[in-house]
Amino acid sequence: MRLSKTARVTLGGITAVILAAVYLPLLVVVLNSFSTSKSLTWPPPGFTLEWWGKAFQSAGALDAVGTSVLVACISTAIALVLGTLVSFALQRFAFFGRETVNLLVILPIALPGIITGIALNNFFTTIMGVPLSLWTLAIAHATFCIVTVFNNVVARLRRTGTSLEEASADLGAGMWTTFRLVTFPQLRSALLAGGLLAFALSFDEIIVTTFTAGSSVTTLPIFIMNNMFRPSQAPIVAVIAVVMIIVSIIPIAIAQKLGGDEDSRATR
């Protein structure tokens, strides 16, 4: 389809406005992390690296980073195992209710976070009777991280098919040998991409975290919310926000690169 010059200019202008609305506020946050002002004022009166030094010396911020990384690692590990198993079950086997199960697996990522948070809070505290902790938080994050792993793995399984696995079985290889030497190498990049996306999704989650973390667990997003309006803390919060932007961009960029490489191989 060929677009007229007017259509191309119009679409280009709309795209530029949308991108500016999304990324200019992020640029303001980045610049405020170097501002000499103790509040998030615009324009910055000057620039300094003082807040970066203070942020990396803040015990509360460092503890929050460690907690977020730990929770993201645990939830990603759970998501990788369960998401992969569900992918195989739904893609390789036909059974009654398969489409319903597929919908239920994907649903947590589509539900509003506040609904998921309230439901999980009631499940842990009322039904299970367990106190909210780091583990309840990790399990809560895994419920929606599974979706990213599932989507990546099931898409790869659909593309690769079963011909190589059947050939391996015909040559006498057992189930685990076939998985180790044939299936897993084909899924490796999909698992890595899904795991990176799950990690990024867990690392900056705030709504579900608020309902399932408990008062003793402080992740980085909660630390930011608690310190946003405290005196002289705004620039440090801006520094932490920049770090979160970087941490979120890197795994997504890697996952996109892995997906692009696999697509280019598939089309050769």
Rank of each mutant, 00 (worst) to 15 (best):
L120P: 04
V154G: 00
T148R: 12
N122L: 10
N122I: 00
I127Y: 14
F93S: 12
T100F: 01
T143M: 15
I118D: 08
E99C: 00
A94Y: 00
T125H: 01
A110K: 01
T126L: 14
A155Y: 02
A140C: 02
P108N: 13
P108R: 09
R92A: 08
T148C: 02
V147W: 10
T126K: 12
L90W: 01
R98D: 08
N121H: 14
R156W: 03
L134T: 09
T116P: 00
G129A: 06
C145S: 15
L104D: 03
F150L: 10
W135P: 00
I114A: 13
F93K: 14
R92Q: 07
R158C: 01
F95Q: 13
F150I: 06
L157F: 05
V149G: 04
R158W: 00
F123K: 07
M128Q: 14
F123Y: 15
E99Y: 06
T126H: 01
F96H: 10
I109M: 14
N122P: 00
P131D: 13
I114P: 01
Q91Y: 05
P108D: 05
C145L: 02
T100C: 00
I146N: 02
A140F: 03
I109D: 03
I109C: 11
G97R: 10
W135E: 04
I118C: 04
A138Y: 05
T100N: 09
I114T: 15
F123C: 06
T125R: 15
N151Y: 04
I106S: 04
F123A: 14
A142F: 11
I114W: 00
V105Q: 03
A140G: 13
L104I: 11
F124L: 11
G97T: 09
C145P: 03
R98H: 01
T136Y: 12
A119P: 09
R156S: 04
T143H: 04
I115F: 09
L137S: 00
L137Y: 06
N121W: 04
A119I: 03
R98Y: 09
I139Y: 04
F96S: 03
I118H: 04
L132D: 07
I146L: 15
N122S: 11
R98P: 06
V147S: 02
F93H: 11
F95P: 10
T100V: 13
A140M: 13
L107Q: 13
I127E: 12
L103F: 11
I127W: 15
L132R: 01
V154M: 11
F93L: 02
N121F: 11
P108A: 08
A110W: 07
N151Q: 12
V154I: 15
L111R: 05
V149K: 07
P131T: 08
F150K: 05
A155M: 05
L120F: 14
V101T: 05
I115Q: 00
I115P: 03
V105T: 02
L132Q: 11
N122R: 12
R92G: 06
L90E: 06
A155K: 05
R158D: 12
R92P: 01
F93I: 14
H141A: 04
R98G: 06
T126V: 12
E99V: 04
T148F: 15
A140K: 09
V130R: 13
T125E: 10
L120N: 08
Q91H: 15
L90T: 13
P112L: 05
I146R: 07
L132T: 11
E99F: 01
G97L: 08
G117R: 02
